[in-house]
Design a protein around this nucleic acid. Structure first.
Lengths: 126, 126
DNA sequence: ATAACATCTGGCGTGCGCTCCAAGTCAAGC
DNA sequence: GCTTGACTTGGAGCGCACGCCAGATGTTAT
């Protein structure tokens, strides 16, 4: 699969794909004899994983370390689990504060609803 | 209240406070006759609001526009409400994808738990 | 064979959100 | 009065995660 196809499938830019590969978020992608990237289905899985984790705010470095451990084999299972568990904790915390913020926003918006109504009653009175 | 006191109270750097003021996330802070910032309780409220919204990912620009509308008075109530409502929607979406990511992470971690156990059974057998 | 287009590498540029620095002013204690 | 430390401004610098571009090479269609 060419890079252009992957771009469309995963909604990601070619620049980002090459960047992720350089940084080790993806394993080295197989090349055609002339040097053009040829993505496999597993590569797509890696790409989706990376996108998902990036969207959750995991830094490039953490993902890169994780991928390099995967490529070292089963002896790194425990370390990989610990990386994911640590990031899970951080994510859960973020989720919690975001929920609080959402609640605050809702309160403020409800407040604005009331104030908007009051203001309009005031100004549309004739 | 001096900037140093606010830094401690709100766990924020003096540089960031001055930056936020420049960018309009905070109203202009009152000064002593010699030009030193003197924060009020309302200023603290603004700071906490800014921190909360920034933590939720609202961009500096949106916050700045919002604050400038507040300072223009009640005729901007509806516009302010719309800014907050728009950001609320975006936040709710982010929250949703983050929850999905959390679920995926949990699945992966459970998987690693199993694989770790299996690996250890394999290697500690004597 | 040639035009038109896709992909490659290497490297520089960008936007965001701070963060640090220099050089000067101000405030508090001795 | 003098030192010491906090505060001021303006501006430069930085880390991250890309985005963009040139120039070379590869591929496809006519």
């Amino acid at each position: 699969m060419t890079i252009a196809e992957v771009c469309k499938l995963c909604a990601i830019s070619a620049d980002t794909l090459r960047y992720y590969e350089r940084e080790g978020l993806l394993p080295p992608i197989r090349r055609t004899p002339s040097g053009i990237r040829d993505y496999s289905e597993q590569d797509l899985d890696w790409i989706r994983f990376a996108q998902c984790m990036r969207a959750a705010g995991l830094p490039i470095g953490a993902l890169s370390r994780y991928v390099s451990l995967v490529r070292k084999g089963d002896s790194t299972l425990r370390e990989r689990k610990e990386i994911l568990a640590r990031e899970r904790t951080r994510l859960a915390e973020r989720l919690h504060t975001l929920q609080e913020t959402l609640a605050k926003l809702d309160g403020k918006i409800a407040d604005y609803d009331r104030r908007c109504l009051a203001w309009e009653r005031e100004h549309l009175r004739r």
